[in-house]
């Protein structure tokens, strides 16, 4: 790190830290969906990345539609795109649970393979429909440019925007899970599916909606993703391994742990990749996570109760 003045280092940390925040947002939105699905049903959804890609392509489609409507539509389309991305991924998730996952409960390995296959099918569908070239979403003017905090620190506005979306969605999910009746049902089912059913909860329905909700969250991650990169058929798939890392590291049953672990992993990758290469940053992050998991196999946070 020699050759940098203290002031420069500070600026680098601030800016890399901020670009790490954008990565954190995508990780977190992906990981929340995955954590809910995995925590609730024990299903490892290898196609989760493709639900994110779906959300990104839907955002692209809405932006193309908006462009034909004129300038005002381009300024205002993004909230609509987020809603469309959520609904699209939610509905696909619902159908996938209904026609595929439901038949594979209690068979984790089969679910893994089946969802992986589903991911491949979806990737090829995207390729056939949208073409192999990456699509770039036309950004509204108010998302372009950056906010200069000091002479040396530039913070991009689109990063601030997806940070706001992420916070809103995370809070909404936490409220839904911990303050609503539906959340009580979900958590009761997660704890003991058989007993929840015998206490009067329609666990099949809870499963279907939970899976769809997790997929919808991935769709929103896709919409957020379009503001920091362009979308190709495999865009989402590239995040799946990192996302699993986040979920396992955070502790599968703890959403708070997921948040902390997404933050830690995204930040260390982003800041380290400035000084080393991107792959070295990844290696270092992975090693750290592996070492910590050796001492805490249950993840960073696990709920404490008597057994």
């Amino acid at each position: 790190m020699s050759g940098f003045t203290t002031q420069e280092l500070f600026a680098i940390f601030a800016m890399q830290g901020f670009s790490g925040l954008s990565l954190f947002c995508v990780f977190l939105l992906m990981a929340l969906g995955l954590a809910i699905i995995f925590g609730q049903m024990g299903v490892i959804n290898m196609a989760h990345g493709e639900f994110m890609t779906l959300g990104a392509y839907l955002t692209y489609l809405v932006s193309v539609q908006a462009a034909t409507l004129g300038e005002w539509a381009l300024d205002a389309y993004f909230p609509v795109a987020i809603a469309v991305a959520f609904l699209g991924a939610f509905m696909l998730g619902y159908l996938v649970e209904r026609f595929m996952i439901r038949h594979l409960y209690q068979r984790p390995l089969d679910t893994l393979l089946a969802t992986w296959g589903l991911g491949l099918i979806l990737q090829q569908l995207f390729r056939s429909i949208f073409g192999p070239r990456e699509k770039t979403v036309t950004m509204p003017d108010w998302l372009l440019g950056s906010y200069s905090a000091t002479d040396m620190i530039d913070i991009p506005l689109n990063g601030l925007f997806i940070l706001a979306i992420t916070i809103l969605l995370s809070v909404a999910l936490l409220v839904l899970l911990y303050r609503s009746r539906w959340g009580t049902k979900v958590r009761a089912t997660t704890q003991n599916r058989t007993m929840a059913n015998a206490a009067g909860i329609n666990t099949d329905r809870v499963d279907r909606l939970t899976f769809a909700l997790g997929c919808g969250t991935a769709g929103v991650a896709g919409a957020a993703f379009t503001t920091i990169a362009s979308t190709g058929p495999t865009s989402g798939g590239q995040y799946i391994v990192d996302t699993f890392l986040v979920v396992v590291f955070g502790g599968a049953a703890s959403l708070f742990g997921t948040i902390v672990s997404a933050f830690g992993i995204a930040q260390s990758q982003s800041i380290l990749s400035f000084f080393w290469s991107g792959s070295m940053a990844k290696v270092f992050t992975l090693l750290t996570v592996v070492v910590i998991l050796m001492f805490r196999p249950q993840g960073l946070f696990a709920s404490k109760v008597r057994r």
Binding site: R181, T184, K185, R187, A188, Q191, N192, M195, A196, A198, A199, G200, I201, N202, A253, S303, V305, R306, R307
Partner: peptide, 23 residues
Amino acid sequence: YVPQGRLVFGTLSVEENISAGLE
């Protein structure tokens, strides 16, 4: 049904356990 071994939902609060039954 009150099962043998009780099987309350351990990580849920007492009130949430009861409201699971209200469903």
